[in-house]
Design a binder for these strands. Structure first.
Lengths: 250, 250
DNA sequence: TTTCAAACATGATAATAGTCATGTTTTATG
DNA sequence: CATAAAACATGACTATTATCATGTTTGAAA
């Protein structure tokens, strides 16, 4: 629950016994944007990045806040949320380690965040001032291309989601979500695939655009049909092919 | 209906009486990406761009086609569409002059188009090979930043649309659409605001994720309530404030 | 281990939107 | 201007999902 702004003065000197002086601290090895940069550009970026930690209940930022930083997920899962004045919520995207965020909003001068970012459990975030971010983009075509590629993928995902919301039924969208999570975040288990992150029926509801009751009802049906089992803490996908069929049923 | 690939050998020498040798042909003056480039970079880009014309019924590209070009809308309106095997369609975005497209898909090596692009009436498209596009991005930080800004805006729009589909009713989404079009593409008229582009009830239905019948019914109600009048060719917004209230009703 | 809040579950009912059918009006095109 | 094809319109019915209510189970923290 602790909400720290804990600027890690310098990136930890965990440099392995590799000779190159630009070796990435091993904890940052999974971040594409850092791997793409070389030599001096990488060093500059590492110097500009600071780290912050967030826990359950915190906000990394809220809808309407001014955009000050460019962010990278270092560890944990971050959810991007939009909400209405009357408390309804819609989860746009779950960001995983290596994912960038606010590469876009930051580009819009003086704009404010169009949605909020919340940690799912404990997360660790790297961030960089807007100024340093733009400087990096100007000086490193590789970084700019990486950001373009990332934004392009995000846009495609968002449009795919739009299509699903517009054309698919609730149970298809939920099946789709489970297939997605199982494929990207699942670990093998004797009886199927276990999802790594805690995910309540309400979380799922917000992700597929239905009410919590509807998500519960559909999950109950899926459970009856032996497609899934378990609840938030221990969600098990028992029949991935079955869910796939359901997801794309005409 | 004619589907030409009509490479305009050289950009027309419509250069006005400005002295600079990099003056933009006036017909291209409304394209941000071209205005942002200076001197040699602009010249290079103009040399790489070719023009193509499309008409009603054509496809600029289809879902699944390989991505070969980066595109800019020069004149007319282009709709981005995704469809299901059984013929249902979802319109993701109407692109207007100056808008870029496939800045994203093209970035994904060897990928194919995630949706199709169709002209609404006659359109004129500027395009550039993927290779030249990447070269431009590498050599001009300004161009890369412009693309990032554009993609960022597209992403925000897409996410706003996701939220609307997830949380708003059909009539609110349709009202929202009309407000949007009236604001961005409307011209004043004695009795309200006239929309410039031809837009059938079916077009609207595809844009807000409902069936054609539902769009027709809602428009009938809007007509009864004196919010709008007319059909596809002559659509009139008679009460913009009224539509705005409806769009954001709790 | 108790205990309380969150999460899950399910029924009854209402609201919303889809489907199918049929008919009228508008518009593009020869 | 004729005429066929779109586009618009509306009724009847069905399917889907939301809402409200109430109760049970689970899990985290004292």
């Amino acid at each position: 629950m602790a909400s720290e702004h804990d600027p890690l003065s310098k990136p930890p000197k965990t440099s392995r016994n590799k000779p190159s002086r630009t070796t990435l601290p091993h904890e940052l090895a999974g971040i594409p944007l850092l791997n793409i940069l070389s030599g001096a550009a990488r060093q500059r970026m590492l110097q500009e990045l600071t780290e912050a930690h967030y826990g359950k209940g915190d906000f990394i930022f809220r809808e309407g806040d001014p955009t000050e930083y460019f962010h990278i997920v270092k560890a944990g899962t971050v959810k991007c949320v939009k909400s209405t004045p009357d408390g309804k919520e819609c989860t746009l995207k779950m960001l995983m380690p290596g994912d960038l965020f606010c590469c876009d909003a930051a580009a819009f001068d003086g704009a404010s965040h169009p949605g909020s970012a919340q940690p799912m459990g404990d997360v660790s975030i790297l961030r960089m001032s807007k100024k340093a971010y733009f400087e990096m983009l100007r000086q490193s075509p590789d970084a700019a291309l990486e950001v373009i590629k990332f934004l392009g993928n995000r846009l495609n995902e968002a449009q795919e989601k739009t299509k699903d919301l517009a054309l698919d039924r609730a149970d298809q969208r939920l099946a789709s979500l489970l297939v997605d999570l199982a494929t990207r975040n699942g670990i093998k288990d004797p009886n199927g695939i276990r999802l790594t992150m805690r995910l309540t029926r309400q979380d799922m509801a917000n992700m597929v655009g239905v009410t919590t009751e509807t998500a519960i009802r559909i999950m109950s049906r899926f459970k009856r049909d032996r497609l899934v089992s378990g609840t938030a803490n221990r969600l098990l996908i028992r029949d991935l092919p079955g869910l796939k069929i359901l997801a794309s049923a005409s």
